[in-house]
Write a protein that binds this DNA or RNA. Structure first.
Lengths: 122, 122
DNA sequence: CCATCATATTCCCATATGGGCATGCGTCAA
DNA sequence: TTGACGCATGCCCATATGGGAATATGATGG
């Protein structure tokens, strides 16, 4: 059921709801990194990452549903390839905070004594 | 229990396990965006985002646990402020795919074109 | 058609939500 | 001291995992 029609008790959003949720899982991020090296069949991915085949397939399904990977048949195999376009929004969203992690903290909140103190304790 | 000691049945990782999980929730991202405008007390955040106070507090707790926000007491209130440093790793990780969302996909498109062409030649 | 290899799915579990509501708690003012 | 105000928590729910194991599906070669 589409989330916008759902009005019952809410739980954590599906991993397939968007890219942010999809990449929240470390192993899925590893898969994406591996795929930068080119297309690979499921079994190979599973092997390189030391995970079972069903596990790899499940993660790949999530990635496919949010559009981060594409698959094509290659004989008996199914090759998965990267489609990183969906990562761009995440990159841009975080980029919107760039000046905040570059600016010195005391300038950001120059009047905040507590933060200055916390910084000295580092 | 720390996840590295956990060996039972695994479920989805905690939202407090890392920044990736923390920002997977849309409302938490909204909170962070709002905080770019400066420190704010819980009630004000809740009001501006149209959410209940307990809800805002819970999200803020998650953000605090992964270090994306800091809080300090200000009399009766508790002011929350942004600490965006934790977003940098996310920005850099996604940045590692930058050339792929530009370049490599053209190659995939080219592949699709080849398929179409091959089909016409049949 | 059958045996086999490559994947995808289905079950079953225990856990971690995200929300609402009620309530505990610390701080400040009268 | 006693309220009142601002926040944090505790409880209860229904949902969505991430995993393992077993099994269904698919595609290929004989």
């Amino acid at each position: 059921m589409p989330i916008w029609e759902y009005d019952g008790v809410m739980a954590r959003a599906a991993t397939t709801s968007d890219v942010f949720n999809a990449i929240a899982e470390p192993q899925r991020r590893e898969i994406l990194v591996l795929l930068r090296g080119g297309e690979r069949p499921v079994t190979e991915l599973a092997g390189e990452l030391g995970m079972s085949q069903p596990r790899a397939s499940k993660h790949l399904r999530v990635l496919r549903e949010v559009g981060l990977v594409r698959d094509r048949k290659a004989g008996k195999q199914r090759l998965y390839g990267l489609d990183a376009r969906g990562l761009r929004p995440v990159h841009e969203w975080t980029g919107g905070f760039e000046r905040f992690w570059n600016e010195s903290f005391d300038r950001l909140d120059a009047y905040v004594q507590d933060l200055k103190q916390a910084r000295q304790e580092d």
